[in-house]
């Protein structure tokens, strides 16, 4: 199962990077999103995979019984998802402003700081 998810992560990275290397700002942002997903999954897979055993302590029990999914990567990813959203929201408003100012979404048209 690691193999499958490893391939998924690789594919997401490839797609994200290809989009980030485009000249269009919109594609750049979409690529950034994909890389965000890829990185979250990377942490998730690196922590080890366990099917269908969430780290929740059942009522009445004192502690978890193995096997259970590793809670630490999940906590990290939860933070990453939320922060990623904040960054993306900011980036989207920013590129919208840039488009209003420059009149193009081509990165190569944005070399001058005087626009």
């Amino acid at each position: 199962m690691n193999l499958v998810l490893a391939v998924v992560v690789g594919g997401l990275y490839a797609a994200g990077l290809y989009l980030m290397a485009r000249r269009s700002v919109v594609k750049l942002i979409i690529g950034l999103c994909l890389i965000g997903h890829a990185s979250n999954l990377l942490i998730f897979v690196s922590g080890g995979l366990t099917r269908g055993r969430p780290p929740l302590i059942r009522p009445g029990a004192e502690t978890l019984t193995a096997p259970y999914a590793d809670p630490l990567p999940q906590a990290l990813i939860l933070t990453a998802i939320v922060i990623g959203f904040g960054v993306l929201a900011f980036a989207m408003v920013l590129i919208h402003k840039v488009y209003v100012a420059v009149g193009s979404d081509d990165l190569d048209q944005m070399k001058s700081t005087d626009a």
């Binding site: 490893a6 690789g10 490839a14 797609a15 290809y18 290397a21 630490l72």
Partner: peptide
């Protein structure tokens, strides 16, 4: 760009597999 992106993706896949194969630290 396609070739480079695919190469990078493949590298990440290999990186994960290698990491999973060599886990020694206690959790």
């Amino acid at each position: 760009d396609t070739l480079l992106a695919l190469a990078f993706g493949a590298m990440m896949t290999m990186l994960i597999l290698t990491t999973r194969a060599n886990q020694s630290q206690p959790r």
